[in-house]
């Protein structure tokens, strides 16, 4: 048999699992327990034409991304401060550790009490993303080659140029890998928060309604939408991040950065 490679291999594998999925749903024959890919797409096609659908995507996307951006910049700033002064690092360590270890659901309930449901997902995606960015900013800055920093010191290079040419380059691989995890997590927990808080006109409300009406096809359709939106956001954001890192980043043949 001829060896498949690249896209055709991926497509074949995906097709294989789609067929398994379809076969399972045909076997079960119960549209509440499981729907197949075809019914999912049908449900999606019904959703796509409604105005509420696009409104819900915008509602959730805007809030989750807002929380995400706030977390990104806050994490960059406090990560840099923690690198600059170890005392600040020690001061910030307990709340960061706290944020990382508390279950998202507890935060959701707390946020519902504090802020109400409308801007819940801003708060939740911030809480999930912020510690990751903070920790990785600090780690990235600490990974900076001390020999290059000595060199810059001897030549009395201004701090701004050091930041752009040395720190930015060593920060990039840490931020990029943190982003890959944080983006997915931010979206998933943002939507999970919406399912609990049920803000009107959100994706979370859509998911909640499909639970109420036992509409599994709609649940799957919404799920697909969430995946697509978060993947698209991830791709765009990583591209922007790569651009922002500048050309000083060394990319090896295996695609890894230094």
């Amino acid at each position: 048999m001829k060896k498949l490679s690249g896209w055709s291999k991926k497509a074949t594998i995906i097709l294989f699992w789609l067929i398994i999925w379809q076969a399972f749903s045909a076997f079960i024959k119960n549209k509440i327990f499981l729907v197949g890919p075809i019914e999912t797409l049908q449900a999606l096609s019904v959703l796509v034409v409604s105005r509420d659908f696009w409104g819900a995507i915008w509602f959730s996307f805007a809030r989750i991304s807002l929380g995400f951006f706030l977390a990104f910049f806050a994490g960059l700033i406090t990560g840099a401060l923690a690198y600059w002064k170890p005392l600040i690092d020690e001061f910030l360590a307990p709340p960061i550790h706290f944020m990382k270890s508390i279950p998202v659901a507890s935060f959701v309930i707390l946020a519902l009490i504090w802020t109400g449901s409308e801007n819940l997902s801003v708060f939740i995606s911030f809480l999930v993303v912020y510690p990751m960015i903070h920790v990785n900013t600090l780690a990235g800055l600490q990974s900076t080659d001390p020999k290059l920093l000595e060199m810059a010191r001897v030549f009395q290079v201004p701090i701004w140029r050091r930041a752009m040419s040395i720190y930015r380059v060593s920060l990039y691989p840490y931020l990029a890998s943190a982003m890959k995890t944080a983006l997915g997590m931010g979206f998933k927990s943002g939507i999970a928060a919406e399912v609990i808080g049920v803000p009107t006109g959100s994706i979370g409300e859509g998911l909640y309604m499909s639970k109420i009406y036992l509409s599994t096809a709609e649940l799957f359709a919404w799920t697909l939408v969430i995946i697509l939106v978060s993947v698209a956001f991830e791709k765009v954001f990583l591209l922007v991040l790569r651009k922002a890192a500048g050309k000083g980043v060394v990319i090896h043949d295996d695609g890894k950065t230094e």
Partner: peptide, 11 residues
Amino acid sequence: AVFQEDRLLEG
């Protein structure tokens, strides 16, 4: 200075 190592910005 020229250091013992090159200490260039590799990228």
